[in-house]
Nucleic acid binder design. Structure first.
Lengths: 336, 336
DNA sequence: TGGGTTTATGTTATCGGTAACAGAACGTGC
DNA sequence: GCACGTTCTGTTACCGATAACATAAACCCA
């Protein structure tokens, strides 16, 4: 491996002089600069960031811990993160927890050891330990998508409560009264906030007594499948289902198909999150669209701000607006 | 920041002794070990991988350079990479080139500076420079998804030629004779291999004179849109379109819709790559499915093998089989 | 011409770990 | 009782870079 010492030797100067040329710091004579640059070229020298980072205590690397990159919502978010990071010369290490708190702490630990400058984290249900860990180390971090109750920390998320409210309001205005909500985990705020929005919409419509039709499961296809089946057993049965995320919607759709129910003729189905690649064909599902790319981009910018400023600054809770897109999966309830 | 020196001081031993306890190397008395472990606990000490890596010349980090993580094919591949890396205690830095050779070299350079142990690379159209750069530095790397002609290097990819052949054969056996191929860039082997498979299928069917209906564009929705429009102007017009990837298929579908053509009644449409999230609903498109997850996983394993072995080993060209999934977007051509 | 600044370069210490070597205490066999 | 091996711990040097300080020549003005 070619080091700064090799370059120095070849150019007949000290390592420090080479360092100055590379970083454009201090005084260098034109002639020396050229000699050093020539040596760098000839040796094809690439500086070692590791050594640099050890000195500077800055790696220009951030960690991105999310639950599952194959969820298109997080995919798009990750792209927003990488773009924002890249714009500022930062690299991104990405990690999938699959909602496991153990994996989360493991990754937080590994990334800490790797001395990342900061961390973006989609918290799992048991994140407080990780947060305490990070706070004890003064390692800047920004939470994504989900709040963690009782902690005053930076969060960038979408308005889950309002979005759910809008979706349910949309169903109500179509004439639905018996609407079941298929939530994710009851320990994840993006899930509970959506259920809260569902309840508020019903309450505002004077249908408080219908608000018990909320089933918690998990943000997975299987979770959606079983939650939908549970909802279908309710008496009288719901005329519409509100899925708290895209995976749940897919599972719910399967359950409906297996039950021989057509969407939207027999039952309406609406969902949080889009299915981006299906949009090219026949976009079907009425959804709340979240600005996933902006979320990732914005959170990264906030994190990088935190890194460049001195003090910790007031924690921010940035809530991005969501957008209702009405398609064909929601229709007025069947007569009777 | 708590360093090994702080732990040493607190435990009343030398740094070296602490290092031995951490790494379980050398001789340590039971009593000293416990005192050191207690100090580590009390100080909440986390080792600095940077310093370690500087010594060891190994970072346990690999780079993943792909074109665009929001393409579900690469998303799934990336997940396979991260899983395999994580299984072996490696972290993954991911980068999007958007098919730009400049971005590619920039990222290769950055990752080299960061001293990644190895690199996974989906080559762009002008990758040879990067390959030479990596070879000069003896930095192990494995190419993903695409070959680079004239270089004997490790590649993990799918059988694009055979897959395209199978797709076109499927159309032929439905009775289609005028089939247009919508390719990506003509400088990317996954694109040219698919066109080659298209041509072989026609040749084998004695329809060599029909093999001119191949349009190169780019692996994007816009590319697919314009390529499809071009194909539609051919006289006589094609009765089926073969899209060389999922984005092209989406663009082509839009073009068909705008032209007032129904799929498959008026024209058939088949494609390489699935649209995973749409599968939950009404899977529509007849496709060649690539084992994206396995590709990422397998390539990572190969890379990690390269890292652990001494010599460079014989370059491998691992070709994973693909799978035809017939759905409703392909049907016999309309009569007349 | 001499003192002070500007310009240019080198030396030393350091970041946080670990390898290599050194040395002390202890046990064991003759 | 002594040589030798085993066990345990410490010291020094080093990984590849840079900050801080040191030094020396060139330049400038009184």
């Amino acid at each position: 491996m070619v080091t700064i010492a090799d370059v120095a030797k070849r150019a007949g100067v000290s390592k420090m002089t080479v360092s100055r040329v590379i970083n454009g710091s201090g005084y260098i004579s034109q002639e020396t600069r050229e000699r050093v640059e020539k040596a760098i070229q000839e040796l094809d020298y690439v500086p070692n960031s590791l050594a640099r980072s050890l000195r500077f205590k800055r790696t220009r690397t951030i960690g991105l811990i999310l639950t599952d990159i194959t969820n298109p919502f997080f995919t798009t978010l990750a792209r927003g993160v990488e773009d924002a990071a890249s714009e500022h010369g930062f690299s991104v290490i990405f990690c999938n927890t699959d909602e496991s708190a153990e994996e989360e702490s493991r990754y937080v630990n590994v990334l800490t050891q790797k001395q990342v400058d900061g961390l973006l984290l989609v918290p799992t249900a048991r994140t407080p330990e990780s947060i305490t860990f990070l706070e004890n180390r003064n390692l800047p971090f920004v939470l994504l998508d989900r709040r963690v109750p009782d902690f005053r920390v930076d969060v960038v998320r979408c308005d889950s409560e309002q979005g759910a409210h809008d979706l349910v309001y949309h169903l109500l205005s179509l004439g639905h009264q018996r609407i079941a909500a298929l939530g994710g985990s009851m320990h994840i705020t993006s899930s509970t906030d959506r259920i809260a929005g569902y309840r508020r919409a019903l309450r505002e419509a004077g249908l408080e007594h219908e608000a018990h039709r909320a089933v918690f499961s998990s943000f997975t296809i299987e979770g959606g499948f079983s939650a939908a089946n549970k909802a279908l057993t309710m008496q009288p049965p719901p005329t519409a289902l509100f899925a708290a995320n895209n995976f749940i919607a897919i599972g719910a759709f399967r359950a409906l198909r297996e039950a021989g129910l057509r969407v939207p003729q027999d039952i309406s189905l609406v969902s949080f999150d889009d299915l981006p690649m299906s949009v090219g064909f026949d976009p079907f599902l009425t959804i709340i669209e979240q600005p996933a790319y902006e979320m990732g981009h914005r959170a990264t910018q906030l994190l990088l701000e935190r890194l460049s400023q001195d003090g910790p600054g007031e924690p921010q809770d940035i809530i991005l607006p969501v957008n209702l897109i009405v398609r064909v999966s929601s229709a007025p309830p069947a007569a009777g």
